[in-house]
Design a protein around this nucleic acid. Structure first.
Lengths: 219, 219
DNA sequence: CTAATAGTGTCTTTTAGACAATATATC
DNA sequence: GATATATTGTCTAAAAGACACTATTAG
């Protein structure tokens, strides 16, 4: 071990957990049980533990598990923020991650210290978490147009209408229904054979095809 | 100040400086003057200094200045790597950056401890710097197709043939000359009025247009 | 004049975008 | 059968890709 007593920044990870509820993006926040900002809802995050974590991905998995009870989460690294003033405790670096999951995953946790805040009307968050959420939305918007990233917000099966709404909200674009369906069936999704009966005329249920993350062209 | 004596990882930044020489990508490395890996060429990098740096961008600027004598460099954040085994001194986090510059900037430094290693035939680097360089190349390849990023490797004026070669090498694709020229003049570049006389028939010199970083479509 | 490289014109194929038409369920 | 929403068909415009052609210099 090499670093007891050095003067080096605090190191943490913060995870922007996004999901899809009531036709809108929501960010999952955790009520803080400790100072600073005790009681306020903030991003799920925590310090890197040198003894428990072998690398940053380990730290993310551990924190998701310990603080939110989540395992096997789809995450990708987002951006790192570091500075003297982003946390009142002093110079800190946070490596941030984007996590996308269907609403059911969060609801089944059945915890009253986890709150879902709708993105369009979100109120301000502690620390520099607003900026981090902005970065996550930017990533989702930019990558959405040529990847299946937005689909990770939905359950494993979904209708094409669901998928189109998610893509329209995350990317901020409007899509023609016929063209959207053709591209998605070409590039990313497959029929399950099941039907959804939530609408007047039942709709076919689709799932993501294996390995379909990045497209070779835009949606 | 809050963190004297905590057990927290070392925090550093590493910068992948890429440039263009002899029709090939090169990475600029610095001969290390201290242990570990003293004497070997490695990425330009250093520890975050909590007293001198207000944020991560400050640390990058300071380190580029102090270690390589470079100022006003085009950089963008790349990725963060952290773990117990990436540096022999213990658990560390490095926030890495991609820097692109024309060869002249490096040559005018006139330093014999800075080496240019050609990418196609590069030998292995200390620490996890190979992985970091790979990430930089991946970023350049992915972003090259729809941005002017590769052009930052060239001097402020360049011929279309130069530009095409840079794009072909960084993206790994081949472009039809006529189509490439049309798209570039449409999207990103403007004539300077000057001519280059390095070839049999002189070629028009171009420059990047203001604000042209991201395209709305692929090259 | 020839070689070498810069630069243009134009045709074909593919993709994007718009929009009309049809299908299948519920009420 | 009316209504709502799912799903398909087809036309047009734009972009991508291929390739032949012309232009301008040095030697």
């Amino acid at each position: 071990m090499a670093n007891d007593g050095w003067d080096t920044p605090m190191a943490m990870v913060d995870i922007v957990i996004l999901t899809w509820k009531d036709d809108a993006l929501h960010v999952a926040l955790l009520q803080r049980d400790k100072a600073p900002e005790k009681g306020r809802a903030a991003l799920v995050g925590g310090f890197v533990h040198m003894t428990e974590d072998l690398d940053l991905d380990d730290a993310v998995s551990r924190i998701l598990k310990e603080k939110a009870g989540l395992t096997d989460v789809f995450v990708e690294q987002l951006y790192s923020f570091g500075g003297a003033n982003r946390d009142a405790r002093g110079w800190s670096i946070t490596v941030t991650y984007l996590a996308l999951m269907p609403l059911e995953r969060i609801q089944s946790l059945d915890r009253d210290d986890i709150v879902l805040m709708p993105i369009p009307s979100r109120s301000s968050l502690p620390f520099d978490h607003d900026r981090i959420v902005d970065k996550a939305l930017e990533r989702l918007r930019d990558k959405g147009i040529y990847s299946t990233l937005p689909a990770k917000l939905l359950p494993s099966t979904f209708t094409l209408a669901d998928l189109q709404r998610v893509y329209e909200v995350t990317t901020g674009k409007r899509f023609d229904m016929a063209n959207f369906r053709r591209k998605m069936t070409d590039l990313a999704i497959a029929e399950t054979g099941e039907m959804s009966r939530d609408t007047r005329r039942p709709a076919a249920l689709y799932r993501l095809r294996e390995g379909a993350l990045l497209f070779d062209r835009a949606i």
